[in-house]
């Protein structure tokens, strides 16, 4: 509004430079110095042009502009509602996918556990079998050794009799210089052994 002073000056000049041009309204209607809004002579013109302009404005807005803006807003509202629905549907889908994934994961875990258990069992069974085999082999070897020991022992015990007889014969020979009946020796050794 810095132009206002300029306006003031122009108004000044206009006034000074005689009321020639556009100010016929006041001059002609004789209401010199009258307050313009109360000059009734101007009313018909103002009312007519107000009716024309405002009437056209009203019709234009009612027929063209307002339906258009209303339509824009409605389309937007519908679109937003539609998008929200779409978003809700997608979220549901995502939730379902997540649930399915978790289910799969749990299944896989369970399966992996089963496989591991099986492997563990297998290994255990194998080890058991191996152990049994080794034990059996050891057992048989032990038995064999036992029987051999028993045989050796028997043989040794059998030989002890013969050795005792020979020793007794030799001792007797050396002591009394005679010979003894073999049967008597054997009987004596046997008696000693028992």
């Amino acid at each position: 509004m810095f132009v206002a002073p300029a306006y003031a000056q122009t108004a000044d000049q206009e006034a000074v430079g005689d009321e020639v041009n556009t100010e016929i309204g006041v001059a002609e209607n004789g209401g010199e110095g009258a307050f313009p809004p109360f000059e009734t002579e101007t009313y018909p013109s103002q009312l007519l042009w107000l009716a024309i302009t405002f009437g056209l404005f009203y019709i234009f807005l009612k027929q063209v502009v307002l339906p258009r803006i209303g339509n824009i807003l409605e389309v937007r509202r519908d679109r937003i509602a539609q998008d929200l629905d779409e978003a809700a549907r997608m979220k549901e889908e995502a939730d379902a996918a997540l649930a399915a994934y978790e289910q799969d994961l749990a299944d896989a875990r369970k399966k992996a556990g089963a496989i591991a258990q099986e492997a563990r069992d297998n290994a255990k069974a194998e080890a058991e079998a191996e152990r049994k085999k080794v034990e059996e082999a050891l057992e048989s070897k032990l038995e064999e050794a036992d029987s051999r020991i028993a045989k050796i022992k028997e043989a040794a015990i059998g030989e002890v009799g013969t050795i005792a007889e020979e020793t007794a014969e030799t001792i007797v020979q050396k002591l009394i210089g005679g010979r003894l009946e073999k049967e008597a020796l054997q009987a004596a050794v046997k008696a000693a052994q028992q």
Binding site: A11, A15, V16, T22, P36, E39
Partner: peptide, 12 residues
């Protein structure tokens, strides 16, 4: 008349 404040309301 220098800066007549009513002038702006005149109808021509």
């Amino acid at each position: 008349m220098a800066t007549d404040p009513i002038h702006q309301f005149e109808i021509s």
